[in-house]
Structure formats: structure tokens, C-alpha cells
């Protein structure tokens, strides 16, 4: 895979769309490193952030990353994803900072009635506390514009005020790729280096670069229960209610988030090529298929972003 990539670059200078996207992302990461005083890269162990990690290697090797990796852990994550997170950070020899929602719950800054309910809405609190703790002025995240309609409107360099809030009606104009990275003390910028990538680009890239991702992205047998239209994975957090029955299905995850609200899709795709083929023919969007928390209202993501979500 890697050989053919290099041959293409060297034999002719036809730049493929993945080359163009990669170069753009590297350029963005280097701008962040050069202009922001204390940046961080948000890293969850999911596929998009694994691509981000490879892009950071491409941007900064042979040196170490000029920023730490940060994960805001809901403690509702799939164990396979956390294992992959830790292994990748260790293999790269980069610093990984993990802050948990449990810490905020202990501090009393997050008050949750039902600890087993989805925790995505509360991630913003711990994220903002972590930003304050380390004084980060820029956080790079792996969000993409094709994921969700509010994200489609967001700048690559997205300014947040001292409360971490996004003001979608008053965004800084973003022209060419001349990025405005300036903030005052206490404010910060969220940066999305893979904004213009699509789900398909991510899979193409994972295939081309032969990236290691958590096994749960590939089809596997899993115990699930059906609630409404959703298929929900059984875990220590989700057990069948009376009347619900456990089924074993061949599934894979298109996104890996909070275990209580991330639904797998039925699939038999056991490698990247098969996933690419399925992705090309699917008729449902990535988050539409897999994120129950995005479907509570037309503007769930926008509201969360306004509160400081990445």
C-alpha cells in the first residue's frame, strides 16, 4: 500500500484527492503548532482521531509532537477503543493526558441523575475544565463537516469565547488557507484539520496507510437488543429490560462513542475494502445510523457546540 502511494507521488505529480486532503491537514496542524502558544490534540482512539495521529506524525516527524494528546473519557467507552488509545499513544511515545467525567462528578461540577444514561452532553464540562487546568489555547479535533449539519457550517479554526461557547451567527470569515489563530487570554480555538474529509475519505486513507483501528469497526458477532428502530449493544451499562430479548447479530460500528447511545450497523464487512464497498452503497448517514443522542432534536449538535462541545 505504502509503496504504491509513494510511486504515485514520485513518478508523476498527479495529486490524488487523498494527497490533497492530507497536505491540507498537515498545513493546518503546522499552523497551529507555530502560532498557538499551548495547543493540544484531542484523541479518543476512534478512527477519525487515529487518522489525525498519522497526520500529526506526517506533519512533525522526525521530531516529537509539539503538543500533548488529550482524551476526555466518559468512562462509557468501549474497552477495545480505550486499549487502542493507550497502545497507539505508547507506541508513538507521545504524552497522553486523560481526564475523566468521573473527576468532574466527584468535584460536583457534573451532576447526573442516572449514571448509566448517555454522557456526551456532559463531556463539554470536563473538556472546559481540562482546557482551564492546562491553559490550552487551541484544541485540535477530528470532526468532519460531512458528519452533521451544524458541523458543516463550522470554520476550520473555530473561535470559542471564555466560556467555551461557539457563536454560529458570528463566526470569523475564513479565506483561502490564511488562518486567523489569534485569541485573547482565556479564550481558545478549536481546530478541525480534517474538516473537509468525508467518511469515505477516512476509510480510503485507513486502507492506504494501513492504519490499525479498534477491532469493533470490523464485523463481529455481538449481543444486541432492539429498542425502537435502534440496535443497542449489550454491555454492563445496557441490560435487557423485561420483555426485551438478546439477539446475536453480525455487526460493526461506524462510530465509537458512548456505549449507551452508539448503535452498531448490521454488517459482514471484515476488512477495510469491504467497509469501503458498504460505505459506497449505504443509504443512511454515519451519525444518523449510529448516534441516538443526535436524534433527540434537529439541533442537538448545535446546542452542544454552543455549550463548549468540540
Amino acid at each position: 500500500m505504502k509503496l504504491s502511494e509513494k510511486e504515485v507521488t514520485m513518478s508523476s505529480h498527479t495529486f490524488t484527492h487523498l494527497d490533497a486532503l492530507e497536505s491540507e491537514s498537515i498545513h493546518i496542524m503546522r499552523e497551529v503548532a507555530a502560532e498557538c502558544k499551548n495547543p493540544a490534540l484531542l484523541f479518543s482512539g476512534g478512527k477519525d482521531s487515529i487518522v489525525m495521529l498519522r497526520l500529526a506524525e506526517k506533519a512533525f516527524r522526525p521530531a516529537k509532537f509539539p503538543f500533548p494528546l488529550v482524551h476526555i473519557d466518559t468512562e462509557h467507552n468501549f474497552p477495545e477503543v480505550i486499549a487502542c488509545r493507550d497502545k497507539l499513544a505508547a507506541d508513538l511515545g507521545e504524552r497522553l493526558i486523560v481526564r475523566s467525567l468521573e473527576d468532574s462528578i466527584k468535584r460536583g461540577t457534573i451532576v447526573i441523575k442516572d449514571l448509566d444514561k448517555p454522557r456526551n452532553p456532559y463531556q463539554s464540562v470536563t473538556l472546559l475544565e481540562t482546557i482551564a487546568e492546562f491553559g490550552f489555547d487551541a484544541c485540535m479535533g477530528g470532526a468532519r463537516r460531512d458528519e452533521e449539519k451544524a458541523r458543516a457550517k463550522e470554520r476550520i479554526f473555530s473561535f470559542r469565547d471564555e466560556f467555551g461557547q461557539w457563536d454560529p451567527k458570528n463566526q470569523r470569515p475564513e479565506l483561502w488557507d490564511t488562518y486567523n489563530t489569534r485569541v485573547h487570554n482565556g479564550e481558545n480555538i478549536r481546530v478541525f484539520p480534517i474538516s473537509t474529509w468525508t467518511e469515505m475519505d477516512i476509510w480510503d486513507y485507513i486502507g492506504r496507510a494501513n492504519l490499525h483501528i479498534p477491532e469493533i469497526y470490523y464485523a463481529h458477532e455481538r449481543e444486541v437488543i432492539r429498542r425502537g428502530n435502534a440496535v443497542i449493544p449489550v454491555s454492563h451499562l445496557v441490560q435487557p429490560k423485561p420483555g426485551e430479548k438478546i439477539e446475536v447479530l453480525s455487526v460493526r460500528f461506524r462510530t465509537v462513542g458512548d456505549m449507551t447511545c452508539t448503535a452498531p450497523v448490521e454488517s459482514t464487512a471484515r476488512n477495510v475494502q469491504e467497509i469501503i464497498e458498504e460505505t459506497a452503497t449505504t443509504r443512511i448517514t454515519e451519525r444518523g445510523a449510529t448516534r441516538m443522542d443526535d436524534q433527540t432534536s434537529d439541533a442537538s449538535m448545535e446546542l452542544r457546540k454552543k455549550e463548549g462541545y468540540f
Binding site: 504504491s4 490524488t16 484527492h17 492506504r208 469501503i276
Partner: peptide, 8 residues
């Protein structure tokens, strides 16, 4: 795979 695809 999609090797020579360009972005417009």
C-alpha cells in the same frame, strides 16, 4: 482503490 481521483 480510488487512486487518481482529484478534488474539485
Amino acid at each position: 482503490m480510488s487512486n487518481a481521483i482529484q478534488l474539485l
